[in-house]
Design a protein around this nucleic acid. Structure first.
Lengths: 200, 200
DNA sequence: AGCAAAACAAAACTTTTGTTCTATTTTTCA
DNA sequence: TGAAAAATAGAACAAAAGTTTTGTTTTGCT
């Protein structure tokens, strides 16, 4: 590899990191300073090269305004909900522990939230204790889908078996029995699990 | 709510979206154009307000360079590696199918890549066909960890059982037997699985 | 060694961009 | 209603940032 290409990549990575960290790109002079390049024209020379290779794009006549043209997936920030408690307003701000970025390509972008799973009742579906499930907020679901149900002031993740006359929730754990909830116990479906993130 | 505060929020959201989309913030005049504000000083007036409220920060004497002070978790963009083929250079650009954002809080930020899992050999560890594993790039691992091993020109995800005299890879699937690879078959560990993202 | 291309420097230049100042209109609220 | 506060405009301005030009040094290759 040519010497210049190594430099080019270094500068490119610097720009990527800079944008990631600051939310705006570095100026020509900032780049120069970082790499001990004493002339702005040299930096310009490298930027031009990146433009030609399609690494970055830049509207003409715009300052500090180039963007990296990467096939970089967008993030979608979804609230991590802590205590999923009583009835309505579970997305109340007090319950939101943070805004977690998830890949938009994978999970779309509308009405999602995230929940930390407790217990291993869904372990045979690949959802274990401590995993984070990505949930689409909705109030009903099809039989067979994995849902988040609110019952007795607690959220639980189970597979939906039946909705009437009773709500039947099926744990994906052969050691556990189905949960049958009668209407008068006032259960509610508050979402459909569309994804799961786990740490090892 | 005061009229100005509504405007302020609208402008703030515009800025957030703009930064998300473009990778750099809009200029004062661009904001003005968007909201039919005819004077740059008016936009300035709003930006100042946001600064006072801590919504944005901006280094003095820097143009087009304010950033939103978000309580949002950071994304870490990691390459999704397609064909994990022969020996070295698996992170060669040709093999990178995209840059996927993953939450930095969960997975740190160094030397990660992502791999699409084929087959259900790790299903009892919660890793199924089609899942995406998050891998820390490293060349050795502890016994018991889930690793990515390169063998016969293919990457495989298994639990590490032994490293000598033979490399023993254990599928987490009771229907499958351990894989024993002798040194002359030239296997290599190319990463440790630290996470998994699955879609339902 | 010698030549072409790549890499870098210096300074001057143009445009963009944020800021400031003053003045006017509109809202808000007592 | 009337005064204070908020919101907006216009123009002028200074600093920052990208660009251009010209030239020099270094590198790569035959």
């Amino acid at each position: 590899m040519k010497k210049g290409d190594i430099r080019l990549e270094e500068i490119y990575n610097y720009i990527k990191d800079f944008v990631d960290y600051n939310g705006f790109p570095p100026s020509v002079r900032e780049i120069g300073e970082k790499f001990n390049i004493k002339s702005t024209s040299t930096v310009h020379y490298y930027l031009e090269k990146m433009r030609n290779r399609g690494w970055i794009t830049q509207d003409a006549n715009r300052k500090r305004a180039f963007s990296i043209t990467q096939t970089r997936g967008r993030s979608n920030y979804i609230p991590l909900v802590g205590n999923v408690s009583a009835g309505k307003g579970m997305l109340a701000t007090e319950n939101i522990e943070g805004e977690i970025p998830v890949p938009q390509d994978m999970f779309g972008e509308n009405d999602l939230y995230m929940l930390r799973v407790e217990g291993n009742s869904m372990i045979e579906a690949g959802i274990s204790d401590g995993d984070y499930v990505i949930v689409h907020s909705q109030n009903n679901a099809e039989i067979g889908e994995i849902v988040v149900a609110l019952w007795q002031d607690k959220a639980t993740v189970k597979r939906l078996r039946a909705t009437s006359p009773n709500l039947v929730l099926h744990p994906e754990n052969s050691e556990l029995d189905d949960i049958v909830i009668t209407p008068d116990e006032d259960p509610a479906i508050i979402g459909k699990v569309i994804g799961c993130i786990k740490k090892f």
